Computed example of a mutant assay.
Amino acid sequence: MPSGRRYRLRKDEFKNLVQEASQRFGESIAGAIGKDVEIHEMDDGTKLIISGGKTIFFRKDGELFPTLKIVDLIRIKRVVIDMGAVPHVAGGADVMSPGIVSADPDIKKGDIVAIVDERHGTAIAMGLALVEGNEMKAPKGKAVKNIHHVGDRIWRVLEKG
């Protein structure tokens, strides 16, 4: 576990977390958040939200993001990338439009999206949409900012826990 402060959420903070997560990712997520929730503050300011011994969310710059481990439990829009883009995105690169196979047309600029590979449909990264979903598949430009990917610091914490 990375260095930093660790503490339990108070009841009011827990209620606010469940409400925020439910609004952003669907009511079904409330059941995945156990009553015993801890926050682990990493030395870079990122806050890991741990429930039942599993890191389910993280908060970075005040924004709540799901981890890759719970992407299949929540309602989240997806961007499908070609296999040539996978190693770059898995290494932390942002998603460029030419590497996009398809994108949910309901994606709005600023939405949190799961980035999945075209062959297996496996989520390899989480990102912030920089353009609308119907504009993502284009000949050039950046479409999604990578915020969490396989192999990053948060992922390594997930692998340990």
Rank of each mutant, 00 (worst) to 15 (best):
E63A: 10
L9F: 05
N16T: 11
T67G: 03
T46F: 08
D36S: 02
G26R: 07
E63I: 15
I50Q: 12
V113N: 05
G84D: 10
K35I: 03
R153C: 09
K140E: 14
R24H: 06
K60H: 15
K60I: 08
D72S: 14
M83V: 14
S3G: 13
V18I: 13
V89F: 01
V37R: 00
R5P: 03
G26C: 04
D43Y: 12
L158T: 09
V79C: 02
H149S: 09
G4V: 06
L130I: 04
V101K: 13
V131A: 12
T46S: 13
R6M: 10
D94M: 08
F14A: 08
K15L: 12
N146R: 08
R119H: 05
E159R: 14
N134P: 11
R119F: 03
L64M: 06
N16P: 01
T55Y: 11
K47Y: 11
A123G: 08
V131H: 02
R59H: 08
I76R: 01
G127F: 00
I76D: 04
K54V: 09
P87E: 08
F14L: 15
V95A: 06
N16G: 12
P87N: 01
V157K: 07
F65P: 09
E118R: 05
K137M: 12
K60R: 15
V18N: 02
K108S: 13
H120N: 14
G4P: 03
G99W: 11
G121P: 03
A85K: 07
E118P: 00
R59S: 13
P98I: 06
V95L: 07
H148C: 04
I50N: 10
I49V: 15
G133Q: 03
I56N: 07
V86I: 14
G141Q: 07
K140L: 11
T122I: 01
E63W: 10
E20M: 11
V116S: 00
D36V: 03
V18R: 12
G110E: 02
V37Q: 00
Q19H: 13
R24P: 03
A143W: 13
D111C: 00
T67Q: 01
S3H: 13
R59I: 15
T46P: 09
I154N: 13
D72R: 15
K35T: 11
K47C: 09
A143M: 12
G92K: 06
I147M: 15
T46K: 13
P2W: 12
M42W: 09
Q23M: 10
H120K: 15
S51E: 05
K137P: 10
G45Y: 08
Q19C: 11
M136Q: 08
H40M: 07
G84Q: 07
I33R: 03
K35H: 12
H88Q: 08
M83W: 13
T46Q: 09
R156C: 07
V150M: 10
V80A: 05
G133L: 04
T55C: 14
A129H: 09
D12L: 09
K160Q: 12
L68N: 01
F14Q: 14
A21E: 02
D152Y: 01
A143D: 10
R156E: 15
R8M: 07
G52W: 06
F25D: 00
K54I: 05
D61Q: 10
R119I: 07
D152T: 07
D111W: 03
F14N: 09
A129C: 03
G53D: 07
S22E: 11
G26F: 10
L48E: 07
D117L: 05
D72V: 06
P139N: 04
G26K: 02
